[in-house]
Design a binder for these strands. Structure first.
Length: 152
DNA sequence: GCCAACGTTGGC
DNA sequence: GCCAACGTTGGC
């Protein structure tokens, strides 16, 4: 059982959108390192910390669960989609996504500033400079601490 | 809106 | 395979 951190710009897709829809297919990841995680390592039952980026304040706002492991991203094959990739095909899908289920929105969001200030959360990838990866593994001890910090 | 830090592309 | 040019991410 692993924990992940997924980044999303709330203007594009927020935790509130996920709460409304209950489940969603996490499409549009177009980075190979993140793709590899989605295709090979994100497993059913894993937890996903939902992170809002490019907003004020950026931070962790909720929790989701993986209910379906990596499947090809159909948006890569759709010429009308913003996520269309001419190099992707049915035989060689190139890009993958997973399906998430909404679990909760944290009573208290945890801002990036707070993450950086926390001794216990030291080493989290998201707090590191220049870290742009949109799918990141999270250590269990960090996840547990976050659950505590966000509970109230 | 700025821009530093990355990632990708493509000529050579 | 190198690397300059370009595009994107995301905090500030």
């Amino acid at each position: 059982m692993k924990t992940w951190l997924f980044k999303s710009e709330p203007d594009t897709y927020s935790i509130d959108d996920l709460q409304k829809e209950k489940t969603c297919f996490w499409e549009g990841v177009r980075n190979y390192q993140a793709r590899n995680f989605l295709r090979d390592e994100v497993k059913k039952g894993d937890f996903v910390l939902f992170y809002h980026s490019n907003c004020k304040p950026p931070g962790i706002v909720g929790l989701a669960e993986v209910i379906k492991e990596g499947t090809p991203d159909p948006f890569a094959l759709d010429p009308k989609s913003d996520y269309f990739d001419p190099k992707a095909s049915e035989e060689n899908p190139r890009w993958y996504g997973v399906t998430l289920k909404f679990l909760k929105k944290y009573p208290k969001a945890l801002s990036l500033e707070e993450i950086k200030a926390s001794k216990e959360l030291e080493g989290m990838l998201v707090a590191q400079k220049g870290q742009r990866l949109s799918i990141q593994p999270v250590e269990t001890k960090h996840y547990k601490r976050i659950e505590t910090l966000c509970a109230v």
